[in-house]
Amino acid sequence: MIRAILIALISAGTLCSCLPFVSDYATSKKYLVLDSLRKGMPQTEVRRILSAEFESDTTVAVTDGDRTFRVDQYWLPTKRYKIRLYTGSGMNGQQSSSLDQLHEVQIPMLVLFDDGALRYWGTVEDFWQTEDQAVARLAPILDEEFSRAQ
């Protein structure tokens, strides 16, 4: 009996110590979705894959010379943090209580389609830095388009 209680206590302690990692694991797992992207994928398939994990709110068309590209914006979580809100002063017999709120820092990821096929994806900084010159030329246009859209 005592052995069973001890095992239960140790198991509970181990599980509690793992809890902080659970949300991190969930966020980390989202990033695995990016690994399934391949250049040339159809826009519908990319949208199906990404919208299952990431929020998307903007789509724009950008033109470079005589070519028009479609660009979707998704929001990637980069960090999670907890804020504890206190209510009541806890003085003069008032009861104080607290509420934990989980916040997520997100950055925009742009997904570029050329004639309905996936061409490139990443942050605006990635677009500026890519060795793909046709994509890099779009960086200043995207910078302007998406800063206007937000």
Partner: peptide, 18 residues
Amino acid sequence: LQHEFMRHPSQIINEIGS
């Protein structure tokens, strides 16, 4: 990162990522 290999303009780097 894995997906950065996949979006690179070089086919060799795409294949390594894959």
